[in-house]
Design a protein around this nucleic acid. Structure first.
Lengths: 282, 282
DNA sequence: GTTCCGCATGAATCGATAG
DNA sequence: ACTATCGATTCATGCGGAA
């Protein structure tokens, strides 16, 4: 097995990205700073300037992504003056104009969302996970994210094994050659485009809470071992940490020095296991 | 208690709506035909013409809605040539331009979505429930849709899987004794903006796109008894039926005569109960 | 009377085939 | 080349008949 490289780079993504090679990244997964009217929060970009701020960055992302690669953008517009702001919608349209295909919109359903009560709205329990691609022929490893079949099966499919085995064999024509995947399919099904992960607030310092399951799910789905993962807004380093643990090379970019330190601390050389050896370049 | 009026009108919404009074409707809840490339399907409007088709209708909707009223639009863009079409995003922007406030986007999470497998995407398990208003001061009766604590999914309690219950229990801290009776003793909490309803699939009757729970939830949330509910794309009549059952006056408009007949059949005079008397105007 | 099981059916999507 | 049609794929749910 080859070494895994985990790079953590300090600087402005717009500039640092220019140092990366063309068509070198398999998956970009990131949660950029959301637009915010309050200027003094981390990365506070005004909503009306968000698209113009993002486009030069996404232009570089387009350049460094492989043709078979995928770009996952986690974003959600806040309520602003009683309304949802439309800058995310405008960003999607602008990215399409830039050449991206808007392949899918996953929903991240946050089981335990932020508490609160307002007279005119309920708690916001979901965020957009927008999928963009350069071509229609991107890599997708669907079997890696299969989930147990729903509860209805417990009550209804207790004795399904014999009849279903027979039916499946006869359908395929040849009576032999049933493989593991056929057996697996009895208990596992493909997921949908609604993901349910709990938010994890293990890190109060960082403004964007990214539960590990989220990048992990997309890394499983869109990359294989030794592929390259990029997070241009690394924050406290969740994406890098997960990528390293999963045996993917990764590059994380972060503009705030204190976050870079935090991320590096997570990526310290782990005890080499029997089959992997982690190399760290920071 | 006053009589409940249930009007079902045959015709093109764009024209029929002109016969309604200004500022007379408390809630518009509808599921218009989605854009579709296939021309000969019911209501097939090409995606690129969708906004221009919808705006004259929404102009009338704006006129007839009370200042305190709400407009709920159920819509979802299909995958088209490997991409999600952007006409819904463009519609939101156009409605804002028309004077609507885009107050909220609820997610309808369909637990039983359409099956299927494709190399580049998973099953689509959600639809948009877009909320628009004329002003920031609209009526909202949040207490009417409260759910038992722990039912974070907003759905019926039976939707909770066993694992979810267990996980939720363990998360709450104490090790033992967390059973149903404890749940029931707890107070009620407000739901979130993610709704979980199963789609209905009758093998006998004609299929309804809309499960009853969906209009019911919004009618509870945004109207009181004797208020007026409008569905400009009534279809087989689910909205009218639910509104009548809940003691709301309603107007449904539908262009296809066979659907109008179906809707009328659902609205036949019910046996008057002790406290209500239904009047039907068709 | 419960519980269990078969079956039909969904606002789906893609790729191949046909006009 | 571009569009219409068709077959294959797949899973949660309600209904109805059977055990």
């Amino acid at each position: 097995m080859r070494d895994i490289t985990t790079k953590i780079l300090l600087g402005d993504s717009k500039e640092v990205l220019k140092t990366l090679d063309d068509n070198s990244i398999d998956l970009i997964v990131t949660s950029p700073p959301y637009a915010d009217r309050r200027k003094n929060t981390y990365g506070g970009i005004a909503p009306e300037k968000y698209v113009e701020w993002f486009l030069p960055i996404s232009e570089q992302l387009f350049r460094v992504l492989k043709l078979t690669g995928t770009f996952i953008l986690n974003i959600k517009e806040k309520a602003d003056n009683g309304e949802r702001n439309t800058y995310v919608l405008e960003l999607i349209l602008a990215l399409k104009k830039q050449g991206w295909l808007w392949t899918e919109e996953f929903i991240w359903h946050k089981r335990n969302c932020y508490p609160g009560k307002w007279p005119n709205r309920f708690r916001d329990a979901w965020e957009r996970m927008l999928q963009f691609n350069k071509t229609r022929d991107f890599n997708m490893y669907q079997e890696t994210v299969m989930v147990p079949i729903g509860d209805w099966a417990n009550g209804r499919l207790k004795n399904l094994s014999e009849t279903d085995k027979i039916r499946d064999n006869s359908k395929s024509g040849s009576g032999f050659g049933k493989n593991i995947s056929n057996w697996l399919r009895r208990s596992m099904v493909y997921p949908t485009n609604v993901l349910q992960f709990a938010t994890v607030c293990n890190n109060k310092n960082h403004s964007a809470a990214f539960p590990e399951e989220l990048p992990e799910w997309f890394i499983k789905l869109f990359t294989q071992a030794n592929d390259w993962v990029l997070d241009p807004f690394l924050g406290s380093g969740t994406t890098s940490e997960v990528a390293q643990r999963m045996g993917r090379n990764s590059i994380g970019i972060e503009i705030m020095p204190e976050y870079v330190e935090m991320a590096k601390a997570k990526i310290v050389q782990k005890e080499p296991s029997l089959f992997t050896h982690n190399k760290i370049a920071v």
